[in-house]
Amino acid sequence: MEKNKAILPNILTWARKKSPWILHFNSGGCNGCDIELLSLLTPSYDIERFGILNEASPRHADILVCTGPVTEQVRPRLKRIYDQIPEPKWVLAVGSCSCSGGVFSGAYNILGGIDKLLPVDMYVPGCPCRPETIIDGIIKLVESIQ
């Protein structure tokens, strides 16, 4: 029994690393990163070979992938979606405006980057990011899971 307790967290970490499911949310971006993120699903990039699945419901996801800066209207929604994701959870900020507000910083309806609202685990810069960059970001995040 004692031995099992020690093994269980290892198994869970192993399982999480093997199948990180992502939830994509556009928090106010221009679409550029979104279409690059979606092209990850297609045959040219095919992220499913890493066990990554684009999931539609926050309750099934491990990683929240945000594209775009946080707008005022989206802010409560983003917080709610983050709260709905079961622990442990990670946040990936994709794109320059998602990292810092980027070109939109200073606008009246923009709060700034995702880290103004949520704890971000990995930043993927680029305007817009290439699909390879996004894959790299997700893989690096998964590798960092302890």
Partner: peptide, 17 residues
């Protein structure tokens, strides 16, 4: 859209989160 408004908002958020 002045920076003052931005600061104000981030303070509010820290209180709320």
């Amino acid at each position: 859209n002045s920076s003052a408004a931005g600061e104000d908002r981030s303070k509010k958020l820290k209180g709320g989160l």
